[in-house]
């Protein structure tokens, strides 16, 4: 496994190569895509990208947690969490690509 870490820069470089816009505009488009997805999720919407996966927001209710070191009880407030469910296509591609 190569184990590299890609960032926004790599995504905008890919957009730059694919469409031939300026590097600056490519970077802005990557940012817009992430912003629109984030905004939809913050509004509580599901973001469903076919053949990629689905991001959904789930409500977690309050519960009593415990500090594992001290054993002390601490209240955990209700919160919203994001879950990502990869599509079958992504699961298959990740499984076959990483097979020894």
């Amino acid at each position: 496994m190569s184990e590299k870490t890609l960032t926004r820069m790599d995504l905008s470089e890919a957009v730059f190569r694919e469409v031939g816009l300026s590097r600056n505009e490519s970077a802005q488009l990557v940012e817009s895509v992430l912003e629109h997805m984030s905004d939809a999720l913050v509004r509580g919407e599901q973001v469903k990208i076919s053949s990629f996966g689905t991001f959904s927001v789930r409500d977690k209710s309050a519960r009593v947690g415990r500090n594992p070191k001290t054993g002390e009880e601490v209240p955990i407030n209700p919160r919203r969490v994001l879950t990502f469910r990869p599509s079958h296509l992504m699961k298959d591609r990740v499984a076959s690509g990483n097979k020894k």
Partner: peptide, 15 residues
Amino acid sequence: EVTDAMARGDRVELR
């Protein structure tokens, strides 16, 4: 690009 990276075993970190 994200899917291809993961298929290679890479991470994609979007701060």
